[in-house]
Design a protein around this nucleic acid. Structure first.
Lengths: 108, 108
DNA sequence: TTGACATATCAACATGCGTTGATATATTGC
DNA sequence: GCAATATATCAACGCATGTTGATATGTCAA
């Protein structure tokens, strides 16, 4: 046994981290901390092109980090707090050192 | 004021998240949770090419997520728990909804 | 000093990602 | 239905990233 985490899980987690690996998307997440926002609000706040925002919102949505809701001609996005919390948990686990884990010393 | 977080910070954070956006690197982080490991142990565990591992370890190192230590002809890598904890903090902040933040409704 | 070993770096390549501008798809009000 | 508005998707482009195999660097042992 070399690892305690399935590779398929790692791929999934990697995709979520990738969604957070872009400054524009982090700005979006930051804005959404304040609550639900429609795309036009986000476009104004970031002063970014419409297709560009749409691209990044899609990336966040596919990673499960945000949820959307159509309201008439507008679409509102909000943080998926559960998923963000889950991800924070993954990182917190890394800070807790594993005890009783047999060290395989290949080199002295 | 559109955001509460400086863009320069976002770029820095984005780079760290990017380091975690690859399954191989997540596997490395997972292995390092068990403590310090030399490169040959990691190469064995992942059954990966040597230059490939070196590439990914460099990425983690430049993101500040791991630290290295030369010991004779071997190099040992370990998690930088402080940095991982810091990143977990960034995510935890996102889960705490911001109160008293005036909503700018551009659309009803 | 020479040879073996551990690790890092490099060059070349293929693939993926983010940007932009154009077009498509709702939805509303007239 | 038609025009206007909000958002999504597409195509094309350039750039970054991950992989591989070859080479360089550093360290030890004989």
């Amino acid at each position: 046994m070399t690892s305690r985490t399935a590779v398929s899980d790692l791929k999934r987690v990697a995709r979520v981290f990738h969604a957070l690996s872009d400054p524009t998307r982090l700005q979006l997440v930051d804005l959404l901390r304040g609550g639900e926002r429609c795309v036009c609000e986000l476009t104004d706040a970031l002063d970014a092109g419409q297709s560009r925002l749409s691209f990044h919102l899609k990336a966040l949505k596919e990673a499960g980090l945000v949820l959307d809701r159509r309201d008439g001609r507008w679409v509102h996005y909000r943080l998926n707090h559960e998923r963000v919390e889950e991800l924070a948990g993954v990182l917190t686990e890394c800070c807790a050192p594993i005890k009783g884990w047999v060290r395989s010393r290949c080199c002295a």
